[in-house]
C-alpha cells in the first residue's frame, strides 16, 4: 500500500458516494448513463471472483463495497428512479466495448484459466466503461455539476493508480503490464473531460462543452 493507491481507492469510494447521494437527494438519475453503470457492475463481478478463494481485509472489504454499491445503483436506476432515466440519450453501442474487451482477454491473458481471462476482460472493460457516460454528456452538451464531480472522482481513481504503479515498480519491481496499459488508456479517455472540468467547473462555471 502506498499513498497514491490509497488516494486512488478513496477517490473511487468518493465517486460512488457522490453518485448515490446525487440520485437519492434529487430522486433522479437524469444525466447518468445506465449503460456505464451496468458495465461497471460487470467489471466488478468478473474481476472480484477471487473473493471466493482469497481474503485480505482491505481488498475484500472494498471489493464487496464496489459490487454492492454498483448493484444498488442499478437497482435505483431500474426501480424507484426508472422514470427519470431517458434511454434515448444513452445510445452508445456497448456491444463493441464488451466484444473488444472479450477478444483482448481471450488473446492475451496472463494464463488461460477462466478466472484469469475474466480478470483480463474486466481490466480492459473498465478502461472504456466510462465511454457511454462521456458520450451522453457530449450529446446533451452540458452536465449537472454534481455529475461532473462524479465523473472526475472516478477518473482520478485510475489516474492515481499510475503513480502507484511507478512507485511499486521502483520500490519492489512490481510490474503488471496489462493493468498499466489499460489504466493509461483509461486516463487518456478522461483527459478531455479533466481539461474542461478544470477550466470550467473548478472556476465556478457550468459544465458546458465548447
Amino acid at each position: 500500500m502506498n499513498i497514491f493507491r490509497l488516494a486512488g481507492d478513496l477517490f473511487h469510494l468518493i465517486s460512488i458516494f457522490i453518485l448515490i447521494h446525487k440520485m437519492t437527494t434529487s430522486k433522479s438519475c437524469s444525466g447518468i448513463s445506465f449503460k456505464s453503470q451496468a458495465l461497471y457492475l460487470l467489471v466488478y463481478v468478473t474481476r472480484y471472483l477471487d473473493l471466493f478463494w482469497t481474503f485480505a481485509l482491505y481488498n475484500s472489504t472494498m471489493k464487496i463495497i464496489f459490487i454492492g454499491s454498483s448493484a444498488y445503483v442499478l437497482h435505483l436506476m431500474t426501480g424507484p428512479f426508472k422514470p427519470t432515466h431517458d434511454p434515448n440519450i444513452d445510445t452508445f453501442k456497448v456491444r463493441y466495448l464488451i466484444g473488444g474487451a472479450a477478444i483482448l482477454a481471450l488473446l492475451f491473458p496472463y494464463k488461460w484459466t477462466p478466472a484469469e481471462v475474466l480478470w483480463t476482460f474486466s481490466i480492459w472493460l473498465e478502461s472504456v466503461a466510462i465511454l457511454p457516460q462521456l458520450f451522453m454528456v457530449q450529446r446533451t452538451g452540458a452536465a449537472e455539476t454534481i455529475t461532473t464531480h462524479y465523473i472526475f472522482a472516478l477518473g482520478a481513481y485510475r489516474a492515481l493508480y499510475i503513480p502507484n504503479w511507478i512507485y511499486r515498480y521502483l520500490t519492489s519491481t512490481f510490474w503488471d503490464p496489462l493493468s498499466i496499459i489499460a489504466g493509461v488508456i483509461q486516463t487518456v479517455l478522461y483527459s478531455d473531460f479533466f481539461y474542461i472540468y478544470y477550466t470550467k467547473v473548478l472556476q465556478g462555471r457550468k459544465f458546458e462543452l465548447p
Binding site: H12, D50, N59, F66, E116, F174, W175, D176, P177
Partner: peptide, 10 residues
Amino acid sequence: VTPVPGHDEL
C-alpha cells in the same frame, strides 16, 4: 523484471 500478476489491487 518478470510480470507479477498478483492481482493485489482493486
